[in-house]
């Protein structure tokens, strides 16, 4: 799925998958920090975004 999204032009750092047990709180924090840093670096998503419908 990630591969196909990237094939269609989504940035590699936009989508993340992880497997974290409910007991792995430190891993959870680490992964969230990692992801937010990467996504912030990319800036707001401009692709796969549906603009609000234009009403006359």
């Amino acid at each position: 799925m990630k591969n196909l999204l990237e094939h269609m032009g989504m940035e590699p750092d936009r989508l993340h998958f992880s497997w974290i047990s409910s007991a792995e709180s430190t891993k959870f924090v680490a992964v969230v920090n990692q992801i937010t840093a990467k996504v912030k670096a990319l800036g707001p998503n401009q692709r796969f975004v549906k603009k609000a419908a234009k009403v006359a």
């Binding site: 990237e6 094939h7 269609m8 032009g9 989504m10 940035e11 590699p12 692709r47």
Partner: peptide, 18 residues
Amino acid sequence: DVAEIDAMTPEQRHAFFE
């Protein structure tokens, strides 16, 4: 043809499929 697209940057790929 898939390899050709894979060689593009994400921006180019997005524009290509657009």
